[in-house]
Design a protein around this nucleic acid. Structure first.
Length: 385
RNA sequence: CGCGGGGUAGAGCAGUCCGGUAGCUUGCCAGGCUCAUAACCUGGAGGUCAUGUGGUUCAAAUCCCAUCCCCGCAA
């Protein structure tokens, strides 16, 4: 079947997951050289005061949209509603008279009036093989759970969370070295071909098998804390799942007695062994940066110390910050040491460093308590395979 | 004006508190030793110490002031 040209297109997203798919749609032409789609609006989350200095921070899609506005052949609007429950927002949406809405990781729930407006429907790109891993963090959860494969699903949107009918799927094999960023890029590059196929063939949607549905909860910072007594396999999954954001982390004590956060973005398996007393201890720091963990060890290849740039393990070694025998700490240990070393006045009870560490021990929004040092960090939701 | 760390050789860092010869690891170049090497030895190049031709001083990477840039937290 062929498509009529000049369908009115709206794109929605926050991270730029549908980048390649959108680019393909905007370039697509019919046999007469007419553009198939005219972009009329891009929806994204409103910029918020954020970051250093609390300046306004724009979403990746917003930035890309501003860039696109400079050289796209037609004017289009950038819209940032707070919710679609507001009748005004719905009216605004309908005024664009869209034929097709392309959604990729938008973050706002689309209400029924929105879903019913476009003639060709609201098509969603989801980063998992639905009905598995519905929800906010499908890629992270798949890596965290050590899945062997995941994939991209193109679906017709429905009111529930990722419950719509499946139009097409493509599997991606998960290599044991891939990070969330790698997978995200790979999946978003798979999207254009799959999407064009869907648009041209217009398949009948396939209902999801509700009994097989699983949910990928949003990731939390507590889950990103590394427990070095876990096995190398589990820690590797965790590090790759949280790479690059928020970054799996641990703490070190520097020579000034400050506790600094160390984020680890990628690791390689190491054949070195570690005793239980060597969990989190640097076993080697020449040529390779190797740290001991439960029943094995890992080579750190990509990391960042608080206040420093991200660098490779080799670069990090040259600065000689982590000497052999240094122990990497978790938040509970840091607090224990801090309270045990009352002599160390450097970290005061109410200093930012102190509260930063405390905040990692307390499940979100909780108020820190005096006994925080004795409490264990929240267990990680990782299954040992 | 939310909180904090940082800018010193191509890269990663020390030196700054307490002012007095510009250092370390690595990379690069040349030579040596090796069957050979990411190993080892010898020598060498490479820095206006972020910027202000700013202030203090006999003397500033170091102390004071201002500006620019990078990074982490928090939300």
């Amino acid at each position: 079947m062929t498509l009529k040209p000049h369908r009115r297109l709206i794109a929605m997203g926050t991270p730029y997951f549908m980048q390649y798919a959108l680019e393909r749609l905007l370039e697509a032409k019919d046999e007469n050289g007419e553009y198939l789609f005219d972009l009329v609006a891009i929806y994204t989350r409103a910029p918020k005061p954020n970051g250093r200095g609390m300046g306004l921070v724009y979403s990746p899609v917003h930035k890309a949209a501003l860039e696109l506005q400079k050289n796209y052949r037609l004017p289009f609007e950038i819209v940032t509603p707070e919710t679609f429950k507001d009748p005004e927002a719905v009216k605004k949406f309908q005024s664009f008279e869209p034929d097709l809405v392309l959604v990729g990781a938008y973050g706002l729930k689309l209400t029924k009036p929105i879903l019913d407006t476009p003639s060709m429907g609201c098509i969603n790109l989801h980063a998992s093989l639905l009905p598995k891993y519905r929800g906010a963090s499908p890629i992270q959860r798949a890596i965290l759970n050590g899945e062997k494969e995941t994939g991209l699903t193109i679906m017709n949107m429905a009111e529930g969370m990722d419950t719509g009918d499946i139009l097409a799927q493509k599997v991606l094999k998960l290599e044991p070295t891939m990070t969330t960023q790698d997978v995200c890029t790979a999946l978003s590059k798979m999207a254009p071909d799959l999407l064009m196929k869907v648009l041209l063939e217009n398949p009948k949607g396939e209902k999801q098998d509700e009994s097989k549905a699983t949910y990928a909860d949003k990731i939390t910072k507590q889950e990103a804390q590394i427990d070095w007594s876990k096995s190398p396999k589990i820690i590797s999954c965790q590090i790759r799942a949280f790479s690059p954001v928020p970054g799996a982390f641990t703490f070190i004590e520097n020579d000034k007695g400050h506790y600094l956060r160390l984020k680890i973005y990628n690791v390689l398996p190491s054949d070195q062994k570690a005793k239980s007393s060597e969990h989190g201890v640097i076993l080697q720091n020449d040529g390779k940066l190797v740290v001991g963990c439960g029943n094995g060890a890992l080579e750190i290849t990509d990391l960042q110390l608080e206040g420093k740039k991200r660098m490779t393990g080799e670069e990090f070694i040259h600065g000689n910050i982590l000497t052999k025998g240094t122990k990497l700490l978790n938040a509970a240990l840091v607090l224990q040491q801090m309270s045990a070393e009352g002599k160390k006045k450097i970290i005061k009870e109410d200093s930012p460093t102190f509260w930063r560490i405390v905040s990692l021990l307390i499940p979100r929004h909780g108020r820190p308590q005096k006994a925080a040092a004795d409490s264990q960090p929240r267990p990680m939701k990782i299954q040992d395979r």
